[in-house]
Design a protein around this nucleic acid. Structure first.
Lengths: 353, 353
DNA sequence: TCCATATTTTGAATCGATTCAAAATACGGT
DNA sequence: ACCGTATTTTGAATCGATTCAAAATATGGA
């Protein structure tokens, strides 16, 4: 069998029509006379022509009908990380509806990432800026395609972004615990800076923490202040947003003289790890310890007990991001979307001592 | 600001060099004299040229450096379903290593799917044939690109595919339970055929079931036979591979006079749902009921208790699939890869009655 | 200085389609 | 039979780069 090297031009010649007509047979069949259409189609079949090559069409159209989702993470991140998956699922739903494709682009190292971003065949990018966001934005800018940043960790109004109101989200979470009567509350923070592991002093938060955890922290503190609790009274344990550092943090928290009755976790992922640790220690949630997460990933709804959390409006974020890209209508300002408290089974009144 | 409509040709003209030289400046900088290179680069910067447009390059090169992963499912499936995610993670790892991109292509309805497959900018496809596999293969064939089918439900040697040895995998699972001493074993089957929900008679398995569950079933039976247990003695409850039908199946199983002491689940997903149901009923795993899954998804390693399962060699499957596509070296035969029994905490000896 | 060789640069062809103004053909009415 | 309008078809230009043989230029040795 010969190589599949039949071009539209070949078909046109063999069928004795012009290339223009042959093109119409495939892309605008209604415009060509039935008899001719049939003939061309037959010739195409005989020649083994598989329809117009997408690459040629694309070059002409200049549009790919796909959006790229990029992160400074390995590709597996998109299918592994609960937050990323929640977002991808939501993005998938919007794209399904509009017939848009999704390309995931990623890389651990800079060089690869630059190349991947430059060679991705997409009409625009959604950037997951959890880590190395600044660099990611810079790289994407060069590509000169519409892009929109999610979870942007820096404050730069020139970057089109969709954000969430982490401050009031944090406040809502903390207020929930406080209303239940908790006063001994500990915080599990998240970040990728080595220095912020272990016990973190409050004065280090502003200078050292990235925007997302910092804002959540301020939300927590704000609610605490409403109840007259000074920030120094609330221990902060820094995690690297992974299992080992979370377990270490939990150990530190519960080996103290005055272990907390409730935990504010800055992500569901960390909260879920913490719950596993508690279960292993024989501590019951929520009877012994209450815990509230952040993000609202689906795992939080099926854990045992089901995790109370502050949910991001993933669907709305995805909808805005995708339409912004597809219609090239990037938001001018950084509007922050609201989060929603989802009360489930991991929080309750503290046990009487 | 003018639209970013600067072409390589514009830069070339403005810099006073030929288009060929301008092209070399970007794609083979070593071949052009430094002085000239600088000049061209400067002009490019002034004009706001963002480097060679990938679409033009692609048209010439004929290669996209990306593979498509397709399924007859909504896009969200890739980020939701445990099995799909395990595979995607593994595929991601292989692609990361080779600098290949991934495009996920999917659609619920035929028409959309056909269009999506035809317009995906990829060098080849990996097909997740869990559902509607036959149609998916047919559609992909027309695209005339290399493709390889995974989890193919039909026996057709002309379709390049990578399979796993479901029969011996099933036998390994069943043998594990039998060796522990279980004799009252029930099967939770999977499928997307409405008719195979609820209690399924053994004689309906061969004519009605798809290849994957059918093979697993035969594996189960084979091991049963070794222990002198006739297939009629093993109740089969059909599920639709989702939560509701699994819960229904469990209810049916445990409302009988002689509830099973162990369960063979045809997927980890179903096994995990079943475990949730058992927990809700106050039945302890593995003390009251043992359960073994199938697939080896990561969730199975972090559930409580951790799920014993028969694991697919995801990494090996991904490696073979990706290299087959990239090197256009599609396998000639349907070699079936071996599965591995992973004993964890969800299986134990049956309680003495 | 001249020639042979090495290094750069050029220009046109190519990749595979789509598009659109203009030309050709068909159709209907008188 | 003829004309005006409607429908089809044509052919060349275009999308934005890469490629490569040939031409131009530089370098070095005698």
């Amino acid at each position: 069998m010969a190589k599949g090297h039949v071009r539209l031009a070949d078909v046109a010649k063999a069928a004795g029509v012009s290339q223009g007509t042959a093109s119409n047979v495939f892309s605008r069949p209604d415009v060509v006379r039935e008899e001719v259409r049939e003939r061309v189609l037959n010739v195409a079949r005989e020649l083994g022509y598989g329809g117009p090559d997408i690459k040629g069409r694309l070059l002409r159209a200049g549009r790919v009908n796909a959006i790229g989702v990029a992160a400074v993470e390995p590709l597996a991140y998109f299918f592994d990380d609960p937050w990323a998956r929640s977002l991808m699922t939501a993005i998938g739903e919007v794209c399904d509806a509009s017939g848009t494709g999704i390309a995931v682009v990623s890389a651990m190292n800079e060089e690869r990432l630059a190349w991947n971003i430059n060679s991705a065949l997409v009409d625009g990018f959604i950037l997951l800026c959890v880590e190395g966001g600044e660099r990611l934005v810079e790289l994407t800018r060069q590509r000169q395609l519409p892009f929109i940043a999610l979870a942007l960790g820096i404050e730069d109004e020139t970057i089109p972004a969709i954000g969430i109101d982490n401050v009031s989200g944090g406040a809502v979470a903390a207020r929930h615990l406080l209303e239940l009567g908790h006063r001994d509350i500990a915080i599990l923070s998240i970040g990728d800076v080595d220095g912020l592991v272990g016990l973190v002093a409050p004065e280090r938060v502003d200078p050292e923490m990235e925007a997302t955890p910092r804002d959540r922290m301020h939300g927590y503190w704000q609610a605490m202040a409403e109840y007259g609790i000074p920030r120094e009274a609330v221990p902060i344990q820094g995690t690297l947003h992974d299992r080992p550092s979370t377990l270490t943090a939990m150990e530190a928290l519960f080996s103290s003289d005055n272990p907390p009755t409730a935990i504010l976790a800055m992500s569901d992922k960390v909260a879920l790890f913490a719950m596993q640790w508690l279960a292993e220690q024989g501590l019951k949630v929520p009877e012994d310890v209450s815990i509230i997460g952040f993000d609202g990933v689906p795992e939080a709804a099926t854990s045992l007990p089901r995790l109370t959390t502050v949910a991001q409006p993933f669907a709305e974020i995805a909808r805005r991001a995708v339409t912004a890209i597809l219609e090239n209508a990037l938001p001018e300002d950084h509007e922050a979307l609201d989060l929603e408290l989802v009360v489930r089974d991991s929080t309750a009144m503290p046990r009487l001592r």
